[in-house]
Design a binder for these strands. Structure first.
Lengths: 190, 190
DNA sequence: ACCATTTCTTAAACTGGATTAAGATTTTTC
DNA sequence: GAAAAATCTTAATCCAGTTTAAGAAATGGT
């Protein structure tokens, strides 16, 4: 089991060596290539993914054929299409590696079996989900309160390294404006 | 314990009579008046609220003094400021009754004690949180993909009764545009 | 029932950010 | 290391939704 996941779990619940060995049997560690797709739009999402190393983007294709990024999955975060996962409905999203990445896959059915053997993990995943919900509420808060330019400056302050290497057009998409507008804002003095 | 909460829990986990009696000791049922505030901006949110009857809104005051509604809490939903709850940080939000309502209050500290006695409830709240996360992802999806007019029509189709009685200016705020624009859209033929 | 407050509508002028188009630069591939 | 592909920039024009302003209608308290 990757150290990053081990550390993340220990921050919320404590598992002994035996528990960890059991958990290791239920997860799959995968390395995925840049641009490799791990969930396709229209397909049922049947797993949660923990980003050990790298980065994924969650996006959809709009009516006019452009990509709209709605979420990024960064290191030490779980990502999934939680609607598709719970309702067993076809996903609205693609999940794709932005760069070569290492992820942990936890299948929904296996997760349910695992919870019977390690009920402490219900607590871990409850806390992970509630933390993500808090982040999502703040995401919506900022989408409502900030202008496009403010969103860029706020994001750039919050994730200065991230905006260094991410393609600008992906950043623009995620922030909800065009690459041309991002260029304009970056070109401004001050 | 209100029947609505009992029914909601049973949809996810099963509790026996004894469990329910125990649970009842940890919750508080409150009736709140129209416009009564249950969480103030700047204050720590230390509970989750289940809406038995009625409706609450989650909002903030913008720089220019207007209210921006970011969420509604409707019947059979849990609401909270999940960031403030987990991080014990001051909330960015007000939570206020839109109409006279009945709610169940579950305090964070009591909830933790309760989980020791009824670990099945970790599962219940995990599922509640994951379902809310799925809804939040779709919320963001639609915020990105729809125009203001599309958001109104989509919301009106999804909650036809709700838009009947909710003040239009609250609906406009929640949908992210001005009451004047809503008036214009509603005035249109077709 | 009546007055005060809250909510809703209409319409003209305005603006933040999109669209369009074209060229410049950087990265990848072979 | 050259060609192809992907990414970024600049600038003119355009438009969805805001702002401003003022009046109309509905609701609520006593």
């Amino acid at each position: 089991m990757p150290a990053a996941l081990f550390d993340h779990i220990q921050k919320f619940v404590s598992l002994n060596a035996e528990d960890l060995e059991l958990l290791a049997q239920y997860i799959t560690v995968k390395t995925i290539a840049k641009k490799e797709v791990i969930l396709n739009e229209g397909q049922r999402c049947d797993a949660q993914y923990f980003i050990v190393k790298g980065c994924v983007r969650i996006f959809t294709i709009t009516e006019n054929g452009t990509e709209q990024i709605t979420h990024f999955g960064i290191e030490n975060w779980w990502v999934s299409d939680y609607l598709s996962l719970e309702a067993k409905s076809p996903s609205h999203f693609f999940i794709q590696a932005v760069e070569a990445s290492t992820i942990v896959v936890l299948n929904r059915v296996l997760q349910d079996e695992l919870f019977i053997k390690l009920p402490q993990l219900e607590r871990y995943f409850r806390m992970v989900a509630q933390k993500a919900l808090g982040a999502s509420m703040m995401r919506i808060y900022y989408l409502y309160l900030q202008t496009a330019e403010e969103r860029y400056r706020h994001f750039a302050n919050s994730f200065p390294e991230f905006i260094q290497w991410i393609p600008q057009y992906m950043l623009a998409s995620y922030l909800g404006f065009t690459p041309e507008f991002l260029s304009k804002v970056r070109g401004k003095k001050i």
